[in-house]
């Protein structure tokens, strides 16, 4: 096996590899909303387009989409229903209504991002996601463990943090869980998506700086605190981001997978 890989090596790919190891570093993201349809998928798409490894989940018990009236939502099961099947079902039900309220447009976008809505609580952290090659943002996400979880609503953040407490952190891997309050409509989701990418860029920049600087410097048991590292800079980066996006209140904690 090693021999086979050795044959594949060439100067060009080696330089490319070096490039990836140094400046090509990408933080891995996870976006979470209630139904894994609107806000988390907008974030998923934007992050994937910005070349970040990304996965997305919903924390609700079921996928709920608006129906003809407020008391008749369209309800689907997580992990078992594809965006495509929901799209086709709603299109058959009432194409005018669901085109007019933007659902078909949203589902049409989602079905080219990944197969279907996934539930956070059912997700086994660290299970390799090698079967998701066609998902957007799957490159770099093969190990199935993100560095940053971004939720789009306070109660989703609560659900995520509570679920992580419940799981008992078997992987011993730190994760920054950040909430950004985004209203659940298409327009605000779009604004939120931009804000998420802005935050991702800011965080990734800090992480990249850490990898470059600390790589050159040596660890000094006494005075290392002089150089701020990525984890420490997260609240600072978030605070600066909040100044740029005052309409999207945020919450942050460091939790464990």
């Amino acid at each position: 096996m090693e021999a086979a890989n050795g044959n594949a090596g060439s100067a060009a790919t080696a330089q490319n590899g070096q490039q990836e190891a140094e400046s090509g570093f990408r933080l891995k993201f996870c976006t979470v909303c209630a139904s894994n349809q609107n806000r988390s998928m907008e974030g998923h798409l934007r992050l994937a387009q910005a070349n970040y490894p990304v996965i997305s989940f919903g924390t609700g018990s079921l996928v709920r989409l608006p129906g003809p009236t407020i008391t008749q939502p369209n309800v689907y099961k997580f992990n078992e229903t594809s965006y495509d099947s929901i799209y086709r079902e709603l299109e058959a039900k009432d194409p005018r209504l669901y085109r007019a309220n933007g659902l078909l447009n949203m589902l049409g976008r989602n079905r080219v991002i990944k197969w279907g809505p996934e539930r956070w609580q059912d997700w086994q952290v660290g299970m390799p996601r090698v079967k998701h090659e066609t998902d957007q943002g799957s490159v770099g996400m093969e190990a199935g463990v993100p560095d940053i979880v971004i939720t789009c609503e306070e109660r989703c953040w609560d659900a995520v943090v509570d679920d992580l407490l419940n799981r008992g952190s078997p992987l011993n891997r730190p994760v920054h869980v950040i909430n950004i309050d985004i209203k659940d409509n298409h327009q605000d989701a779009s604004i939120g998506g931009r804000a998420i990418v802005d935050l991702a860029d800011s965080l990734n920049k800090a992480a990249l700086e850490e990898r470059e600087k600390v790589g050159a410097a040596v660890f000094d048991a006494g005075g290392a605190a002089s150089r701020a590292n990525f984890d420490e800079r997260v609240p600072e980066v978030l605070g600066e981001w909040q100044e740029r996006w005052p309409g999207l209140p945020s919450t942050w904690t460091l939790s464990w997978f």
Binding site: N5, A8, G9, A14, Q15, G17, Q18, Q19, P128, V130
Partner: peptide
């Protein structure tokens, strides 16, 4: 990235190895 270019001899081997290691990691996943 001139620094990478200047350290060419060492960099190639490290990069090569990283690539191999990346492939190995993908395999176990």
């Amino acid at each position: 990235t001139p620094s990478a270019a200047s350290n060419n001899a060492a960099a190639i081997s490290v990069a090569e190895q990283l690539e191999q290691l990346g492939a190995a990691r993908k395999l176990v996943l």
